[in-house]
Design a protein around this nucleic acid. Structure first.
Lengths: 217, 217
DNA sequence: TCATTAAATATGTATAGACATAATTAGATT
DNA sequence: AATCTAATTATGTCTATACATATTTAATGA
């Protein structure tokens, strides 16, 4: 175990045991460095992850304080749907439902299944200006989702998570129970100012949720 | 603008312009340090945020490669519901609906409103073993959510996001439209191995969604 | 040929020092 | 007393160097 990890654990312990209650200023980096017998850089490395996780707040000149745990940050990774399914030990299947071009936008509808049951309906729009190679792409075997990831970098992603009543496509393809809502992930990606693609990913509420686990040993 | 910021921007440019296409190895840290005329530590600082955002992948001895953009990470911060509402310039109101103790668990039901309309129904369970001071807390004026944040640190948070059909309490208090689903945030916090509290936060789907915006200039 | 072992190497950790910068505090001026 | 100014200070950035460590690559031996 590295020095900064040991120090981080000890600092975490002091926070959790309320040795340093919420709101108090903790010793300066130089003092901590002296206490633990390490260089200031090592202290800074130990502090940085605690700041990132929202347990500490730093301000120049004012020092470092134990943060009120509101606004706690969690890192969310939405993986490729195929990986999501296969990593859970399930069978993945893909099916193209519709594919057309209009106004310089390729519009694709396809279905991702888990163990032969509908899992995600992908309603995808791709800018042919932004991604010219999308004109020739064959989405019969590879999903737009997966194809896009191999193609093009992007600089900005906007993601929205919501609950919704199913639209007509959802009803038709997702095999929903009576009154079952859908969980929506809407994602739009840009390269600088250029719009590249938009995805509406709908899932039966009974089979899909997003879990986050932000922990500190 | 600092050196590492300039360098990060230039590296970002090379990735986005496909000067360094996805999958390629970028120059070693020492080479980049020589190219930009800075110390290796400065290069590492520039790289770290790109690694964190998922644009680069590092591996010892193997070097640094441009990552396939699957599994792109976003940092999600779920703020205090009152802040959420007030920061949007809306009026916040709080109302206690029910409050009882059973089997060492305090069980509170309360409603958070935005502009006099139901926004979040908070179904809260607090362990009186884990948080003894919760016995005396008065939730008539302050919500458990807010009270807890001022009280107790925690070391682990499990969050689950899902869509669901409303339960009887949701129907009674959330003023839902016909067939409107709810967006659920379920949150459980622990201090080491000790269970502290569990919250079921339900929202009318029409008024609530979670947005994330992961950008790089 | 194949498995094992040893060398090479790029990133990871740590140190010690210098200077920059934002924010506070104390002091000077009106 | 109120306002502006200067000193102070804790964090932020940067350098230069040394060694540690995970992985790959090359060399060795059965």
């Amino acid at each position: 175990m590295h020095k900064y990890e040991k120090i981080r654990m000890e600092l975490t312990r002091r926070i959790n045991s309320q040795t340093w209650p919420v709101g108090t200023s903790i010793p300066h980096e130089d003092e901590l460095a002296a206490e633990f017998g390490v260089a200031r850089g090592t202290i800074r490395q130990a502090l940085s992850s605690l700041v990132e996780a929202g347990f500490l707040e730093k301000k120049r000149r004012a020092g470092t304080r134990v943060a009120y745990p509101k606004d706690h940050a969690s890192t969310l990774r939405i993986a490729l749907v195929r990986d999501q399914i296969e990593q859970g030990g399930h069978a993945y299947a893909y099916q193209l439902l519709d594919d057309k071009v209009r106004d310089g936008v390729r519009h694709v509808l396809c279905l991702h299944a888990r163990d032969r049951r509908p899992y995600q309906l992908e309603d995808r729009r791709i800018s042919l200006d932004g991604i010219p190679s999308a004109k020739q792409a064959d989405f019969a075997t590879i999903s737009p989702n997966e194809w896009l990831l191999q193609q093009q970098p992007y600089s900005r992603v906007e993601t929205e998570l919501s609950a919704a009543t199913p639209n007509t496509h959802d009803v038709k393809y997702l095999d929903l129970k009576p009154d079952e809502p859908v969980f929506l992930v809407t994602r739009e990606t840009y390269l600088d100012a250029i719009w590249l693609t938009r995805a509406r990913l709908s899932h039966p509420a009974s089979v899909y949720s997003i879990r986050m686990d932000s922990a500190f040993q």
